[in-house]
């Protein structure tokens, strides 16, 4: 992958445009897939060879003045592929919505997966100061501002920001913005205020680098988890991580098998956070525009049959607020809580 650089007039960040010509848009997923694999393996190499994973209590070599690279990665030509979208929806149990004109509304969780290789490309850059493998996904907030349809091609801009202390290490955000490309008649590309300049989908993923010391986190009391009355249960087989990896491209070894997960210090394979989030979101089954946020708790060790509770004030376009809680019924620990507003 080649890159060319300039500076974003809006953010002051160095724009790194991933070299994917729009005419190759349909092939982007494939290219991004190999980028991802390479990125992931770089991360593993770094984790296994370069240095041991940071451990809690140990000061990382960079010390408190670790900085996130002042760059943003830009990838255009991300196609919402019909087959990939259908496969993703099947795995997470999402019911694709079709408009009368035959257009299918893209599932919000799929858009995250579609842009994920770009985020991985950022996290696996040589100037990225934190190890990719071993990052803990803490939370996600998504502003899905307008419906996106299968067959559309979007541009992704990805940046990392807000490195901050966390009680178990250092936390930071990866922000992904998806925009429609300018249509004929649009004013200058990139000009603030033009319709296409507003992201149709913005995702903010909060990650934790365990044991990395960037200062002392403010003490925060987490409220005790009170399990709601269950309304459902999921049956997650040991292959859940592999199934989701196949449709999302997220081949992080901690999700793929018990053996590969143990090699990275986990007790066994755990479900992808975004699998859990997508499946929870699918249960609410609400059309865009919408806003949702998910907070992850204990790792969801596979296989599992977590208890689930769905609370919502309406159905479909009549839904305004909804919550899905996924938890371990035996230990009474939350795996994830997803809230949706629209």
């Amino acid at each position: 992958m080649t890159e060319h650089h300039d500076t974003s007039p809006e953010t002051g960040r160095q724009r790194i445009v991933l070299d994917t010509a729009p005419s190759l848009g349909g092939l982007y997923a494939k290219a991004a897939g190999s980028t991802l694999v390479r990125g992931a393996s770089t991360g593993i190499r770094r984790a296994l060879k370069g240095a041991p994973l940071p451990r809690p209590g140990k000061r990382s070599p960079g010390g408190p003045d670790l900085g996130l690279p002042p760059v943003e990665l830009v990838a255009s030509g991300l196609a919402v592929d019909a087959e990939g979208h259908e496969a993703f929806c099947r795995v997470v149990g999402a019911r694709p919505r079709s408009s009368p004109s035959g257009r299918t509304e893209a599932f919000s969780g799929y858009l995250h997966a579609m842009a994920f290789p770009v985020a991985m490309a950022l996290l696996t850059r040589d100037d990225f100061p934190l190890p990719t493998v071993g990052l803990v996904h803490l939370a996600n907030t998504v502003e899905h501002a307008a419906p996106v349809f299968v067959g559309e091609t979007l541009e992704a801009v990805v940046r990392a920001e807000d490195l901050r202390p966390h009680r178990a290490g250092a936390a930071f955000d990866v922000v992904v913005e998806l925009r429609r490309p300018p249509a004929d008649g649009d004013t200058a590309p990139g000009a603030p205020g033009t319709p296409w300049n507003r992201p149709v989908w913005t995702g903010r993923s909060v990650y934790l680098a365990r044991g990395v010391d960037v200062g002392t986190a403010a003490e925060s009391e987490r409220p005790a988890f009170v399990p709601p009355v269950p309304t459902a249960r999921w049956q997650l087989g040991s292959g859940t991580g592999r199934e989701y990896a196949a449709v999302s491209g997220d081949v992080n070894p901690i999700h793929l098998s018990a053996a590969s997960a143990r090699a990275l210090g986990m007790k066994g394979a755990i479900a992808h956070g975004m699998y859990t989030a997508s499946r929870a979101l699918a249960m609410l089954d609400a059309p865009a525009p919408l806003r949702w946020e998910v907070e992850f708790g204990a790792p969801l060790l596979l296989p599992a049959s977590p208890a689930v509770a769905v609370e919502r004030d309406g159905r479909g376009s009549d839904l305004h607020d909804g919550t899905v809680t996924v938890w371990d019924a035996k230990r009474k620990r939350p795996y994830a809580v997803l809230r949706l507003h629209r």
Binding site: P230, T231, A232, R233, W234, Q235
Partner: peptide
């Protein structure tokens, strides 16, 4: 189908 719970549950 919509809940994954058996009738007994």
């Amino acid at each position: 189908p919509r809940t994954g719970l058996s009738m007994g549950e």
